[in-house]
Write a protein that binds this DNA or RNA. Structure first.
Lengths: 113, 113
DNA sequence: TGGTTGGTTCGCCATATGGTGAACTATATT
DNA sequence: AATATAGTTCACCATATGGCGAACCAACCA
């Protein structure tokens, strides 16, 4: 159902880099300033800022500058979009092996408690 | 748990392109020869073959040549790896937002529906 | 045997990506 | 006021990406 190409391009492209994935994982623990985010990586700040720009461009993170510190936080919606796309695909391929029914059921809950 | 950087790089990079995502979706319906796969797209065969090479390099598809026809099929394991990674991340962020939601709710009970 | 078809390979090109170092701005800190 | 700190911007570089057209090989068909 969902088929928004452009955003997915950006999200998947963001996740194709280990540095950026690490940033995402890190930010899921909570917000953090740029320098602290950059510290674990063996690249210069300019290069790291480009990564942040890619992530922010993809809508995966947001950032706000207070004083001289820019604080970044996760924006998980786009992450969910990526997972949704994969889940859709999985529904198809797993359907061939047998779990389609379970998935459909989980999507169409209609009369629980 | 799972933290295999290199394969994920290739998988996410593969999925960052709409043509390649379309190929994946298409192949989930069943195997198909190269030409048939390429037909919907407005690019030349050489360019399309590069996309297939990227997908195959990422382990998302396999292909076999019989006669002069190369038939491609999906190899869903790597797709699952990507979804697993995202599911892990979601587990974290949903854990947080769930706790947050629970907290907010616990502070604001009093006038629901 | 000769043509058509399905793929492949080759060279080429424009642009994007991921990195660098150096210079610069603006906000703390002392 | 002087200095350190956190980011930012800039010019630059090497390589990867995604596309092209043209030439090519192998196999099926007539």
């Amino acid at each position: 159902m969902a088929n928004q190409p452009a955003p997915l391009d950006a999200v998947f492209h963001s996740l194709a880099d280990p540095t950026r994935r690490a940033v995402v994982t890190r930010l899921l623990q909570g917000e953090a300033p740029v320098k602290q985010l950059a510290q674990p990586f063996a690249i210069g700040l300019p290069a790291f800022l480009k990564h942040l720009a890619v992530l922010e461009g993809a809508g995966l993170i947001r950032s706000e500058k207070r004083g001289r510190v820019r604080t970044c936080r996760i924006d998980a919606e786009r992450l969910a979009a990526a997972e949704d796309w994969l889940a859709e695909q999985r529904a198809v391929w797993q359907g061939r092996t047998d779990r389609l029914a379970a998935f459909v059921e989980s999507q169409t809950i209609g009369s629980p408690s």
